[in-house]
Structures are given as C-alpha cells and as structure tokens.
C-alpha cells in the first residue's frame, strides 16, 4: 500500500446536529459566520437559560446590546458554567 485517504466526520455530541444557531442561522455543527473551520475554534456557549449559541455570535450580540439580554428570552444572559 502506498497511500490511503482518510475522511473524518464529526459533530458536537452535546446538541442536536440539526439545530441552528438563532443568530447566524448556521447549524451548530458548522461554524459561525466569522469562522472557516468548525470545532474547538468556534465553540458553543450555553446560557443559564439553556439557550445555546456560537460563542462568537452571542459575544458580538452582547457587545452590541447594552442590556446584555438573551436574544431568545430577553432576560439577562449569563453563561452556564
């Protein structure tokens, strides 16, 4: 054998892969609109409210929005630890 090609498949195991990030509308298994490669470089962030977004998407929103509210429930967004 001289060479082989490997093909990898991955998905977050913490979330339904069909779900999309409400902010960028891209699947969670894809990256946010600013990134090129999904995965650890473009992680997900859950709020205490259980709503999930790409970290980069929710960070940009919280920088823009003075009240710092969750885009889905309008309550102050606190990252789940």
């Amino acid at each position: 054998m001289f060479r082989w090609h490997t093909v990898a498949f991955w998905e977050w195991n913490s979330i339904d892969s069909n779900e999309v990030c409400g902010i960028c509308q891209s699947p969670f298994d894809a990256c946010c609109a600013d990134c090129k490669i999904p995965g650890d470089q473009c992680p997900l962030l859950w709020g205490k409210c259980k709503h999930c977004f790409h970290l980069h998407c929710i960070s940009k929103w919280l920088e823009t929005n003075n009240e710092g509210i969750c885009p889905l429930d309008r309550q102050p967004f606190e990252a789940a630890t």
Binding site: C24, Q25, S26, C32, A33, D34
Partner: peptide, 15 residues
Amino acid sequence: STPSRRRLMKDFKRL
C-alpha cells in the same frame, strides 16, 4: 462575503 451578507443569503433561502 461578510457575516452580514452570509446571514442575508440564509434569510433569502428561508424566505
């Protein structure tokens, strides 16, 4: 291509 433009393409597809 920018994040806003990519988002607007998704909006258009959904519409």
